[in-house]
Nucleic acid binder design. Structure first.
Lengths: 153, 153
DNA sequence: ACTTCCATGTCAAAACTTTGACATGGGAGA
DNA sequence: TCTCCCATGTCAAAGTTTTGACATGGAAGT
């Protein structure tokens, strides 16, 4: 074992459940469950909601853009868009004006549905924000971004 | 808009990609991709690895225990265990000694495979740890746990 | 002892996601 | 201009996960 360190004060052994990776996974699983729960009441899935939210802020994103931003494949993104289109929440031009990318936009109904759902979803976000000491929140956001970029490069 | 605040110094508008929820999702997606990449080389999936890791630290966990700990359903857990059993990495008694729960254990081969894979996986964990200023790491871990528990209750 | 309730294991079907493949449009560089 | 390369959209198949349902073993309370 370790020769230098005498048996110090009782410290919990850092098992897997205290690793960064496990905690990130756990937080995400809890988030997913909470979002699923509130979205189901409005007949939307998490990827569908995420897509609406992104389109509200950056209208004209293509399927490939949205897929990257929601962390799924283009093929999955396509399924999501089809569902939203069938529900009348988004529109896509039948023909691409430039390249193959077809810019997507929210319909009036899409904006309305999003506004309604946002109340519920933001409440979930708020539960997270409220759980963190206010002065630590900016640091937490920065650190989460550091984790992501460290793994993405 | 906001009447009190005069236009201050240039601050980035907090769009969706800066919300806690989005960043947690992004970090987890990056983690998943990184883990998949290193595990694929060893012929294991992420749930399979997670299961091995948990069993190494807490031998005798049942399928239901493992499913909860790896954030999947019992049914998915069952598939994972079947795969590991077929690969000879774990053993499950054919009959339950108490209740219906069948305690699972690593085989010798399971321990060996885990030891090999751990090197690669811990390198991924280390990339995350290295990205965070050391004095902030304990706080980050604590905050991730706060996020999770806030959503779980 | 009996009933009720809960957790577990498992089967089958449905839903969702990814992998693999291919065609098309456009830009970069010879 | 022409060729090569890359990104996009989409189809089909495979793989994975969840939803739903059911049977069984034990524990708690009556």
């Amino acid at each position: 074992m370790n020769e230098r360190t005498p048996t110090g004060p009782p410290q919990p052994v850092p098992d897997v459940t205290h690793h960064v990776g496990y905690l990130v996974k756990r937080a995400q699983a809890a988030l997913r469950a909470a979002m699923d729960k509130v979205l189901r009441a409005h007949g939307l899935t998490v990827p569908q909601y995420s897509t609406l939210e992104l389109l509200a802020q950056r209208p004209g994103m293509s399927n490939a853009d949205l897929a990257r931003a929601t962390f799924v494949t283009r093929q999955s993104g396509n399924v999501v868009l089809r569902g939203l289109q069938d529900a009348g929440l988004i529109t896509r031009p039948a023909t691409a004006d430039h390249g193959r990318a077809r810019p997507t936009h929210l319909t009036e109904e899409g904006h309305r549905r999003l506004a309604v759902v946002q109340e519920a979803v933001y409440a979930v976000e708020q539960r997270m924000v409220d759980a963190i000491p206010p002065q630590r929140l900016p640091t937490l956001l920065a650190d989460l971004e550091l984790l992501a970029t460290a793994l993405e490069e």
